[in-house]
Nucleic acid binder design. Structure first.
Lengths: 188, 188
DNA sequence: TTGACACCACTCCATCTGTAGTACTACGGT
DNA sequence: ACCGTAGTACTACAGATGGAGTGGTGTCAA
């Protein structure tokens, strides 16, 4: 088992891309090798088996998901109005929607977690952390809205993104944008 | 290509189970044969290829998804109160959450739709129909809430189900139930 | 000199697919 | 009542594919 952490990270990032592009079906060691542009057999040397690979991808994914510094600043220092919240959320939805591969890979991971306890454990931890992070930050910022508001927004916006990414023609872009605003108006 | 429609349906239902249990990766003609308890090679005779199979599963899934008659009756005849809506929705969430395999299969299909235009077309049609059905029914019923309310509820509840099915320990059952109530209170 | 790793090549293996061939069943015709 | 035909179930096979894992060699750095 090789130890070079930089290479391992590169392989995991490649795995995320493969996962999003080809789905769980296409995620093979060889595909990861190809995506990472390393010689065939390399991934075999870095991961004991598919399970191991998936689990490490789970870690890696959330490792990459750092809170956006600029957004954090606006949350802390910007105006504390409904409009501000709307702007922030619209941006967030756009940003996530734009990071197509990442979000789709995460969905694949969630489905895999259904069958892999270890992976489920990791994802549960990370999602929990993410949710409470959002709640405490929102509350601390002094923006309008309580814990329940944040949770409801979390729910609605996540599915909105799923909808936009998997079946983009169900809701138009305008409808999606309007829904973000409506969600803020009614939740806070 | 065989034509026996009963058998074809049985194969498609088997495919849904396989999809939910093993994921897209495990969905092979042979696995479908085994799940449906028919001789190996049967699925090959009924579907031209994997694409064809997936597409027909898409159709079949929504064929099976009929509006619950009792629920429809309550929607039309029951009291038109917030409490009634809450009850209905809580039940709906429970029912869908209980039909684990079906919902998980649907998520797998959505991810597959990302790579299969034909499948995407079918799912888009069906989801659209489902959404407008819910909207018109809700409005017709005279329950409180407008179109936007229904859409927001659709978004939030769907992700709530995803959360419960894929990472059940992120939100407790009680939290989930509370969120359904809160969603109604704030959306309508 | 030694150890760790990159790279390469090769073998084994596990499926899966698609189809050809045979047997069965039901139905329609005479 | 008998036979022929069509469509389907079932079995078996041939082929192909693709991937996993590992051993060996070269390279670089401590």
């Amino acid at each position: 088992m090789r130890r070079n952490p930089e290479r391992r990270r590169a392989l995991l990032d490649a795995a995320i891309e493969v996962l999003a592009r080809e789905g769980a079906r296409g995620l093979t060691f060889r595909a990861v090798d190809a995506e990472a542009a390393v010689p065939p057999g390399t991934a075999s040397n870095y991961f004991a088996n598919r399970d191991d690979l998936l689990t490490q991808v789970g870690y890696r994914f959330y490792e990459r998901l750092e809170p956006d510094a600029a957004t954090m600043a606006r949350l802390a220092e910007g105006p504390k109005t409904r409009e501000a919240v709307k702007g922030l959320l619209r941006e967030t939805v756009d940003r996530v929607t734009a990071f197509r591969t990442g979000y789709l890979a995460l969905l694949e991971l969630r489905l895999e977690a259904t069958r892999r306890p270890e992976l489920q454990k990791i994802l549960t931890e990370r999602v929990r952390a993410d949710v409470s992070f959002n709640i405490t930050n929102h509350l601390k910022s002094g923006m309008p809205g309580d814990e329940t508001s944040v949770l409801l927004l979390y729910l609605a916006l996540n599915w909105l993104i799923v909808e936009r990414l998997t079946l983009p023609d169900v809701l138009t872009e305008e409808q999606a944008a309007a829904l973000v605003e409506a969600a803020v108006d009614r939740f806070l």
